[in-house]
């Protein structure tokens, strides 16, 4: 549904997005994860035909981004929740949505039905006649999402839809995105919230000017080779540590009586570790396997590209 090949954007001599390639299938929720200034907004703006690209190609539903007649078709097909909500404060919630419905040339019936459905889903129907200027940030954000959906777009772009929202509003928005996913819409989501990306995205791309990694959250976690086994002993004696050093383990950190051991394959290696500990006279109190989190992967990748 969305395809980018070597997509690049330069502002003067600053390269904001550097040759990124990825593909998003129909009905998929794709998250673009990256720190401030990584080029997330720039990428979305290029895909929405709002700014030109400096190089590479991109297609949405087969239409070419950057070609004139095609960009009109693309805009017909997509919905955008920009990073600034950009609502009209002097119009009511209903009128804001109705204005956009008209620009997408929806029939009056369709507009009415969609506006009512969306506002109801987002808990804003009672406020439909209230001026948007009086809305809270969370309400505005939800309204901006509703606005992007008035015309039933096939593809929805969202630029940090939960930034600046309190936990409860974030949850409403996230749940709403999950509902949209059930409707088989393709969703492209910019975020710097790892937890959010992990919870709602089918696949994640980690962006830091270049696209550093792409995959399912699980893939990415696994990609940071191995997981960790955390063992708490009654006493971390020299003998135990010496015995462990004999094993082909990646790294061992000792914190009091707790050992954190990097293992690439815990299912097989943990047995050997236990055996070595017991043979050396160690007494095991607890054993835990932790996988490296998406956070570890993210931080590692982003730091690597920064340096």
């Amino acid at each position: 549904m969305i395809e980018a090949i070597n997509l690049t954007k330069r502002f003067g001599n600053l390269t904001a997005v550097d040759g990124i390639s990825f593909q998003v299938d129909e009905g998929e929720v794709f998250g673009l994860l990256g720190p401030n200034g990584a080029g997330k907004t720039t990428t979305v703006r290029m895909l929405c035909c709002l700014i030109s690209k400096s190089g590479g190609e991109a297609r949405i539903a087969g239409y070419e981004v950057g070609k004139d007649p095609d960009s009109l078709e693309i805009r017909r097909l997509i919905g955008l929740v920009p990073d600034n909500v950009g609502l009209y404060d002097d119009l009511s919630a209903y009128d804001n949505l109705d204005f956009y419905g008209k620009l997408y040339e929806c029939t009056e019936e369709k507009r009415k039905a969609n506006i009512q459905r969306l506002l109801t889903m987002l808990g804003l129907w009672e406020k439909k006649d209230v001026l948007v200027g009086t809305f809270s940030k969370g309400m505005k954000q939800k309204l901006a999402i509703a606005r992007a959906l008035v015309h039933d777009p096939k593809v929805l772009f969202m630029d940090e839809p939960t930034a600046n929202l309190d936990p409860e509003s974030s949850k409403t928005v996230r749940d709403f995105i999950l509902d949209l996913k059930k409707e088989k819409r393709t969703i492209f989501l910019n975020t710097h919230n790892l937890d959010e990306a992990q919870r709602i995205c089918d696949r994640i791309g980690i962006l830091n000017i270049k696209l550093v990694a792409v995959g399912t959250p699980q893939d990415l976690e696994r990609s940071l080779s191995g997981r960790k086994t955390v063992i708490t002993l009654k006493e971390a004696s020299k003998e135990v540590l010496a015995a462990l050093k004999q094993l082909p383990l990646e790294d061992i950190t000792v914190d009091g009586n707790t050992l954190t051991i990097g293992v690439s394959n815990p299912e097989e290696q943990n047995a050997a570790i236990m055996e070595a500990i017991v043979k050396a006279g160690g007494q095991v109190i607890s054993v835990n396997i932790t996988s490296s989190s998406l956070e570890d992967v993210y931080l590692k990748l982003v730091r690597r590209t920064d340096s």
């Binding site: 035909c49 950009g86 997408y104």
Partner: peptide, 14 residues
């Protein structure tokens, strides 16, 4: 000022 040009320009309006 209202930053409403971005969503407006994202619509199929010439």
């Amino acid at each position: 000022v209202e930053k409403s040009l971005e969503p407006l320009l994202a619509t199929p309006t010439t």
